[in-house]
């Protein structure tokens, strides 16, 4: 039998809290979240387990796991949690920490690169531009796509938050 000693990891707890996941300590492991989770029904993602791992500060197990990315942020667990744990906020906090360590899927990076390049998460498509004109809409929507200065500002803003390190 292998016995693993788990030591408290206050630094991890603080990091999660700083990123918006403070109340994970409220979880008493009832499992309402896992029972309600539509992703858990289809994948190996287990919300209750993730909340316990977070309380215990099992940093590597959490940040390296693919399951962390199985949550669709549907909020069913949050709606039903009897302890009002902001579960989705905890998941987002953990994902931020994973990405900061370089754990990011290629397709997610592409989405991030789209945002960084054109200010939108999806690309511009010529057929849609044509359809927009047929509908009497501006060929280019009146967003950052239509204003270079506004787009440059958005990039500058994203750079100030360190987004350039994620997309490179």
């Amino acid at each position: 039998m292998i016995i693993t000693e788990i030591r408290p990891n206050p630094e991890f707890e603080k990091q999660v809290a700083d990123l918006g996941g403070a109340d994970v300590k409220m979880c008493f492991q009832c499992g309402t979240c896992t029972a309600s989770c539509p992703s858990g029904r289809r994948t190996s993602y287990r919300v209750r387990k993730l909340m316990r791992q977070t309380q215990l500060g099992l940093r590597e197990e959490i940040l390296n796991s693919e399951e962390l990315w199985d949550c669709t942020t549907c909020y069913t667990c949050v709606e039903r949690c009897p302890r009002s744990v902001p579960i989705v906020d905890v998941v987002v906090a953990l994902r931020n920490m994973a990405v900061a360590e370089g754990h990011i899927f290629e397709n997610h990076k592409k989405t991030a690169q789209n945002l960084y390049k054109i200010g939108h998460t999806v690309t511009v498509n010529a057929n849609i531009e044509k359809l927009r004109e047929e509908l009497g809409l501006a060929k280019t929507p009146p967003t950052v796509l239509a204003n270079k200065k506004a787009m440059a500002d958005l990039v500058k803003l994203m750079d100030a938050t360190g987004f350039n390190k994620i997309v490179e």
Binding site: H108, L115, T121
Partner: peptide, 9 residues
Amino acid sequence: VIKSFSKDT
């Protein structure tokens, strides 16, 4: 996606 990558951004 974006909020999962960087809450600050």
